[in-house]
Nucleic acid binder design. Structure first.
Length: 122
DNA sequence: AGGCTGACATCGC
DNA sequence: CGCGATGCCAGCC
C-alpha cells in the first residue's frame, strides 16, 4: 500500500484532482487495469469520473502514466482514440498479457485493479 | 469574465 | 427495464 500523497511530484501543495489521478494511474500494476469510476471513487468523488478522463487527457503527454490501463467500467477501451494510433492501446495491453476482444478486455473482472482496495489515502 | 466541453458513472422517471 | 438528465473540476474559447 502506497500512500498517495507521497507519490505526488515533490511535495507540491498542489494536491489537485489531476495529481491524484496521475499518482493512482502510475501505480497500476503491470498486467492490471482499472476503471475511471474506481479512480474517481477512490479519490472521494465518485461522480467525477469524467474528470479522470480529462486528467488522463492531460496525463497523456506525461511519462510513466499508463493511460492504456484505464478503461471504462465495462472494460471497454473507450479512450483508445486518444492515443497516437487507435490500436496502440490494445497493443500495449496485449503486451502485458491482457486479451482484447472487440475493444473489450477479456476477464476484465479478474484483471480489474481496485485502487481503493490496494491503496491508502493519507 | 462567463460558459461550454471533456477518454464516465449514476440516479431518476 | 431503457433512456434522459445531472454531477464533478479544470482547461480553453
Amino acid at each position: 500500500m502506497a500512500p498517495i500523497k507521497k507519490i505526488l511530484p515533490s511535495g507540491k501543495k498542489d494536491t489537485s484532482f489531476f495529481e491524484q489521478v496521475y499518482a493512482v494511474v502510475a501505480l497500476i500494476p503491470f498486467g492490471r487495469v482499472t476503471s475511471y469510476g474506481a479512480i474517481a471513487k477512490f479519490l472521494g468523488t465518485k461522480m467525477s469520473a469524467r474528470m479522470v478522463g480529462w486528467a488522463l487527457n492531460n496525463a497523456h503527454h506525461l511519462p510513466n502514466v499508463p493511460a492504456h490501463r484505464v478503461v471504462n467500467r465495462n472494460g471497454q477501451l473507450s479512450g483508445k482514440a486518444h492515443f497516437k494510433t487507435p490500436n496502440q492501446m490494445q497493443e500495449l495491453l496485449e503486451l502485458e498479457g491482457i486479451t482484447i476482444h472487440n475493444d473489450c478486455i477479456v476477464n476484465f473482472n479478474t484483471l480489474f485493479w481496485d485502487p481503493s482496495k490496494e491503496l491508502t489515502i493519507e
